[in-house]
Amino acid sequence: MRFWIPLCLALGLGMSSGFGQALPAGSSILQKLDDQQRFTSDIHSSVKMTQQKVGQGTKLLEMEYFRRDKDQAFLINILGPEAERGNGYLRVADNMWMYRRNTRTFQHINSDESIGGSDAKADDFETRRLMETYAVTKSKDGKEMVSAEILGKIEVYRMEARATVNDVDYPRKIWWVRRDNGLLLKEEAYSQSGTLMQTAYFLKYTEINKKFVPVQQMFIDEFEKGNRTVVELANIKTNKLDDAIFTKAYLESQSK
């Protein structure tokens, strides 16, 4: 009976820490995540953002999102709630405008402006390569902080990374990435002082043009407990979008 004990332990360790398996290089996991995020076509989708805030109840924001790949131009047209309907945002090159339906005016704004009064910023709709902004953290003995774990019932790699540039929201992140297909399942974001600020769960993916797109994400505010935001994407299309969409005239026409 005695040999069963180490054997069971070994199996157990194998399940939880990937004993016996060679862990992939952190950079290759990062590269894979980058490749998944990187779309080489235009995108059009519906976005539903449900924001729950302590003492403020739940706010639902629905919008249409258009992105042109060649210059990363984008247009956001807000569909609801009624108070926000018809408002929108347009970005072309370095310029970004906010359109207000009530006043029928365009205002030149910064990309860190809040979208429809939510916690989302225009910056959040831009993609930035992880390889250029983060590097996998190394332990004192020089080993990359990548480990094999089980998240729920799914085998994942847990990877810790630090920002290599100053201008990122969170200087430290931990990712849980599926071992079989490299999909990101969970992300923890930490402040400079090491406080856990936000946990993101990537709940549901869909396959479009051989790429996996997270269509349901949940962001939990760990700093102010009780706040959470769920983002859902639907009707994702990747066909080429008409250049006329990325114009003020188009945004204005959508408000009528």
Binding site: A163, N166, S191, Q192, M197, F223
Partner: peptide
């Protein structure tokens, strides 16, 4: 009092 803010680089800080 705990506070969340963004530093001069735009990174979140918790203090």
């Amino acid at each position: 009092v705990r506070m969340r803010l963004q530093d001069f680089n735009g990174s979140y800080q918790a203090i």
